[in-house]
C-alpha cells in the first residue's frame, strides 16, 4: 500500500507546497521494527492528522520529526525527513537541538514547567541565550496571543503555571512551542487529557494557527481527525496504509483496511 501513498504524495505536490517529506523511513526499538518504509508528504500550513489504532506507530513517527528518539538508547532509524525539500533532519550531521529549535512539540498531557506563566513561554528563547527584556516580553506576548491565552493570563504572568486550568495549561504549552517561530509544530494527542470544552477550544485554536504554521497531529479520535484536519494518514502495524485529503479519506477510503477501521471493525 506504500505505492498508493507515494502516488497520493505526487498529487498533493501540485496542490500545496510541501513542508516536510518523509522518505522510506524505517524505525526500530531494539530488535522490533515499529515503522516500515513510511513515505509521506506534509503540506505547508495545513493540518495533517496521523491516525490508527494503538501501537500502529503514529506517535513514533511523530517523534521522529524532532529527533526525540535520540534521547534514548536502542532506538535506530533509517530514511529521510526533508524539511523544505532541502535539509534531511534525520541526518547524523544535523544537530537534533537545531532541529528542535525549528520544530516545536506539544505533548499528550499538559506539561508546563513548575515556573511562572511568563518563564514557561520564554524558555524556548532563554535556552538560546536571549536575555533582552523587551525582546522577550514582545515574543512572549505574541506567542500567548497566538495560543489564544493572552487575555486570560496577561495579569497573571508572574503566577505559577500550575494555577491555570488543564485547558489553559495545554494552551500555555502551545505558546511555549510557538515562541521560537517554528516551521512545524507536532501535537501528540493534545486533547486526550482534557474535557470536551477545552478540547473544542484547542481545536478552534489549531484551525487559526494553520495560517502561520504547519501542524502535524497524532490523534486516536476519528471524529477529531474528521473535524479539523485537512489531510489524514491512516497507519496500521507500522505501515502507512492510506494518505488523503481528510474529506476524501472519510468519504471514499481506497484501502479495505482503512474502510474497516473507519467503520469500526478494526482498532
Amino acid at each position: 500500500m506504500v505505492t498508493s501513498s507515494s502516488q497520493t504524495m505526487q498529487r498533493l505536490d501540485s496542490q500545496f507546497p510541501i513542508k516536510a517529506e518523509v522518505r522510506s523511513l524505517d524505525f526500530y526499538y531494539g530488535q522490533s521494527q515499529v515503522l516500515n518504509d513510511i513515505n509521506l508528504a506534509i503540506p505547508d500550513r495545513q493540518i495533517t492528522a496521523l491516525m490508527g489504532p494503538s501501537g500502529c506507530g503514529k506517535t513514533t513517527l511523530l517523534r521522529c520529526f524532532n529527533r526525540m528518539h535520540d534521547l534514548y538508547p536502542n532506538n535506530r532509524y533509517r530514511g529521510e525527513i526533508l524539511l523544505d525539500q532541502r535539509h534531511n533532519i534525520l541526518s547524523p550531521t544535523i544537530d537534533p537541538i537545531e532541529v528542535r529549535m525549528r520544530i516545536g512539540m506539544v505533548f499528550q498531557k499538559p506539561n508546563p514547567f513548575p515556573k511562572s506563566v511568563y518563564e514557561n513561554v520564554a524558555y524556548g528563547l532563554r535556552v538560546q541565550g536571549r536575555t533582552q527584556r523587551s525582546d522577550l516580553d514582545e515574543k512572549v506576548e505574541a506567542a500567548l496571543k497566538s495560543a489564544a491565552l493572552w487575555h486570560e493570563v496577561k495579569d497573571r504572568l508572574k503566577e505559577p503555571a500550575f494555577n491555570l486550568s488543564g485547558g489553559q495549561q495545554q494552551r500555555l504549552c502551545i505558546a511555549r512551542a510557538l515562541v521560537t517561530n517554528p516551521d512545524l509544530v507536532l501535537f501528540d494527542e493534545p486533547t486526550s487529557a482534557l474535557d470536551p470544552m477545552s478540547t473544542a477550544h484547542i481545536e478552534e485554536l489549531m484551525r487559526q494557527l494553520k495560517a502561520q504554521v504547519t501542524i502535524l497531529i497524532v490523534t486516536h479520535s476519528l471524529q477529531q481527525a474528521a473535524r479539523f484536519s485537512d489531510y489524514a494518514a491512516f497507519m496500521y502495524l507500522g505501515k502507512l496504509v492510506e494518505f488523503q485529503k481528510t474529506t476524501k479519506l472519510f468519504a471514499e477510503p481506497q484501502d479495505p483496511l482503512t474502510q474497516s477501521y473507519l467503520s469500526g471493525s478494526v482498532g
Binding site: I97, R100, M101, F107
Partner: peptide, 12 residues
C-alpha cells in the same frame, strides 16, 4: 515529560 518538554524547545 518535564525533561522532554525542555528538550523539545531546544535545550541541551
Amino acid at each position: 515529560m518535564i525533561r522532554e518538554a525542555a528538550y523539545a524547545v531546544g535545550a541541551t
